[in-house]
């Protein structure tokens, strides 16, 4: 038995390592390429440089694109939070009958492929009463829909995990008004979960390419579009951008993981 278990462990580990290698190899190559000065006939580059990074950070368009991406994502997520938090709260606590309907609605973004959604949106909004195709507004609107499932599920799960209804009932019976009960008792307890959904949504948007490119590709240069455009110019530079982009998303993911752990600890006591 023990021998068998050991053998299985050994096989598992080899598979894991092989898989990790397979997944990380392109990234590793990109990383090396981003720091390589000359790299032709050798396994590792002959000379190293920070040139590409300095070129990237020196490029005003990169900083602009980064900034554009950051604020478009931030606005979309903030808007979603402002609308979804009260909406999900009211549905979960006071209108549980609507939940089935909402569950259907929030999976729609998964059901409609990005390309289809983009074409549909351009068709609808290029003329007519709201001609916003190609502007930041249509992008923010589309982003709102993209993160709808994450926000809805995240907020709803937090509410259910802390038994929000029961907390509210307790607070109300102790003399608190509904608003006050929400602020004192529900909000502080769902906050960690809400932050996680927010960050998750943010990183999803930051990595989204199809919708962004199709909707505003020619007009607004987000970091994704900037990256796409420079890809053809210099492989080294593109690698530097990809690595920076990856490090940013990685940092975001790490923060997410830490927060999730902290929250789970809090719940389990």
């Amino acid at each position: 038995m023990i021998g068998k278990a050991k053998k299985a462990g050994w096989v598992n580990r080899t598979l894991m390592v092989a898989l990790m290698f397979y997944l990380l190899l392109p990234l590793l190559a990109t990383l090396i390429y981003a720091f390589a000065k000359e790299w032709q006939a050798t396994i590792l580059p002959e000379r190293w440089t920070l040139e590409w990074f300095s070129e990237m950070f020196g490029d005003a368009r990169f900083m602009d694109a980064l900034w554009t991406s950051l604020y478009l994502c931030a606005i979309s997520v903030a808007l979603s939070l402002a609308i979804m938090l009260p909406a999900v709260f009211i549905i979960t606590v006071y209108l549980p009958k609507w939940e089935t309907f909402m569950k259907g609605v929030v999976v729609l973004p998964y059901a409609v492929p990005g390309v289809v959604a983009a074409v549909g949106l351009i068709r609808t909004y290029s003329t007519g009463p709201v001609p916003i195709a190609g502007t930041a507004y249509i992008l923010i609107g589309a982003y709102f829909i993209v993160i709808l499932p994450y926000m809805y599920q995240g907020i709803r799960n937090s509410l259910l995990t802390v038994s929000a209804v029961e907390l509210l009932n307790s607070a109300e019976l102790l003399g608190a008004s509904r608003m006050r009960a929400f602020a004192n008792v529900v909000l502080p307890n769902i906050w960690p979960g809400v932050i996680i959904s927010t960050l998750l949504s943010f990183s999803v948007l930051f990595g989204e390419f199809v919708l962004t490119n199709m909707l505003v590709g020619g007009h607004i240069h987000t970091i994704q579009i900037y990256l796409y455009q420079r890809l053809g110019e210099s492989g080294h530079l593109a690698s530097a951008i990809v690595i920076s982009y990856f490090v940013f998303i990685l940092a975001l993911s790490l923060i997410l993981m830490k927060l999730t752990q902290k929250m789970n600890r809090g719940i389990q006591g």
């Binding site: 802390v162 038994s163 029961e166 907390l167 307790s170 008792v185």
Partner: peptide
């Protein structure tokens, strides 16, 4: 309540 309903 059965499940206490204390504020965590």
């Amino acid at each position: 309540f059965q499940s206490y309903g204390l504020f965590p």
